[in-house]
Nucleic acid binder design. Structure first.
Lengths: 129, 129
DNA sequence: CTGTATCCCTGTAGATACTG
DNA sequence: CAGTATCTACAGGGATACAG
């Protein structure tokens, strides 16, 4: 991004703005795990065994840019320890995530060809500051 | 779709399932307008002047397949009258959409480079059955 | 009036190899 | 341990023209 222009982001409604933050193939899972406690990169890779290096970093960078998580580096030289943690703004998504999770579960009970692995309880820890 | 296979959809959590239904470049706007009242195709095209033919039909078909809206055709031959209407399941998204809209608006007040055209009031009609 | 059929462009994500 | 650099693949979305 040459020059660092400030491009005014325009949304038709707040829903689009919120979707821009939480949609992304792995973001709900990342938010769920980070809701429990701060996590190192290797923790997240264990929790999401099939995500690729590149995409993990990418999604975390986006969440960081949106101020949903913080990224802290410990150590002067390799090997580094990098810790990601939910911000207060990130925690403020808790109620929305739980409601969305419940709605999806409710839907799954009515569609035989749909299955959901983890229930909304995984997101409730986000609310415990 | 040859054979009509039933492929079991797997989600890690309900959030992903819900996102699958409401994400899509134009779906929040479509849901907002359909929340007011049933709408004809031409109504929706007026409301969303920049959407293309193809994509409008596409997004409506997806919402229909997900049982969020119904599609009814009136008339024996062209010109047809096609009316789209929110289902009860679609209306059950109301609270979530309002919360998401509020969160997005709140966020916009803190980010100078972000603007939201319409506020959450546009979604409140969804709740009035 | 509505909807389909093409063709094309771009963004998102995956695989793999490499660096500090 | 964490992250970057390429290259590749695919789906979503857009433009246009055509059909019932």
């Amino acid at each position: 991004m040459l020059g660092g222009h400030h491009v005014k982001k325009l949304y038709n409604n707040g829903v689009e703005a919120t979707l821009g933050v939480i949609s992304g193939k792995w973001k709900p899972q990342l938010l769920c795990h980070l809701g429990n406690r701060p996590q190192r990169t290797c923790d997240l890779r264990q929790a999401l065994p099939t995500i690729s290096q590149k995409v993990l970093t990418q999604q975390l960078r986006e969440l960081e840019a949106d101020a949903i998580i913080t990224r802290r580096v410990y150590g002067e030289r390799a090997p580094f320890k990098v810790v990601y943690e939910l911000t207060d703004l990130g925690r403020s998504l808790g109620q929305i995530l739980i409601q969305m999770s419940l709605w999806g579960e409710q839907r799954a009970t009515q569609l035989p060809d749909m299955e959901i692995r983890n229930d909304h309880a995984g997101f409730t820890h986000i609310l415990e500051n």
